[in-house]
């Protein structure tokens, strides 16, 4: 048995700043996920968090995103988002899968006739479940953050889901000392959440620092901007004059309303998010 040699003189190394620390931890999570699971996919909504994820993945893997991305197309995306999708697909060289719940569309499920929770369940959750059945991914990398919603505050970086996609939030695995739940339950998968510790403000400051491309809908036009992007019939802009990243950051530093305030499915009924998430929503 050898013993470590006597300590060398302490080297002066400044600690990483807040954003760098978040970034470096997320990169580590990406690498652990990619190594520990056979078949990884990253759902991609094209929103700001989603684009930060692509950026971090490229940093983790020397410029390449080594797994497919999945866009669950509700058919209610803003037109700008489809344009952005095609641009980003080329820019980042990503292998993009697009899936639509065609069956629900045929049955006439839509915002004109159904409530937002039902539509979200049909067009997002069920479409995702079908894709999971098709591709048998054992890990999905998602962009959820703790500060988005109280139920997400309880999440782990690696969060196992049952074969039915359900989240057993009452019995979560312990997660400490950088060791994650890297084995998927029988027939199920693990949600890997590299942005869990990030806040909305962190995301914006990182987008600014790294000059990450994002859709223009986030910036104010005619006194309004989108703070969070979902299906267009249920996503409402907030009053804002913030037309640049700097202005958005300045605005967020002052604001005290929640990010998803413009997302109708969260408010339709009490505990809507909790119900959606327990059923397998992001």
């Amino acid at each position: 048995m050898t013993s470590p040699a006597p300590a060398a003189p302490a080297t002066q190394v400044p600690p990483m700043d807040h954003l760098t620390r978040l970034e470096q931890t997320s990169i580590h999570i990406f690498r652990e996920a990619f190594r520990n699971f056979r078949n990884v996919c990253m759902p991609w909504s094209m929103g700001k968090d989603s684009n930060v994820l692509i950026w971090l993945a490229r940093k983790a893997f020397a410029g390449k995103v080594p797994f497919p991305l999945l866009h669950i197309d509700t058919t209610y995306e803003f037109p700008e988002m489809y344009e952005f999708r095609e641009w980003a697909r080329k820019e980042h060289g990503i292998d993009l899968l697009v899936r639509v719940n065609e069956d629900a569309i045929r049955r006439g499920v839509g915002y004109a006739t159904h409530d937002p929770v039902t539509v979200t369940h049909e067009l997002k959750t069920l479409a995702l479940r079908a894709a999971l059945d098709e591709f048998k991914w054992d890990a999905l990398i998602t962009g959820i953050r703790r500060d988005e919603d109280p139920t997400r505050a309880k999440e782990r970086h690696f969060s196992p889901r049952s074969a039915e996609g359900a989240w057993d939030y009452k019995d979560q695995p312990p997660e400490f000392w950088g060791q994650f739940a890297t084995r998927a339950p029988e027939g199920g998968h693990v949600r890997v959440q590299p942005l869990l510790e990030w806040t909305e403000l962190d995301i914006w400051e990182y987008i600014r620092r790294e000059a990450i491309p994002i859709p223009t809908l986030y910036f104010a036009r005619d006194g309004k901007r989108f703070r969070s992007l979902g299906c267009h019939p249920i996503t409402h802009p907030v009053p804002s004059e913030a037309a640049t990243i700097d202005a958005v950051i300045a605005e967020l530093r002052e604001t005290r309303t929640s990010e998803r305030a413009g997302r109708a499915q969260d408010h339709h009924e009490r505990n809507a998010m909790q119900k959606l998430r327990a059923k397998g929503f992001m």
Partner: peptide
Amino acid sequence: EDLAALPLRLPVSDIYRFDHRRIIAGR
């Protein structure tokens, strides 16, 4: 604790060969 003053410990996470390079990854 000031971890920078401790001896280097880099557990290898993976070895990447996405292109001509062989990259050792770890934290």
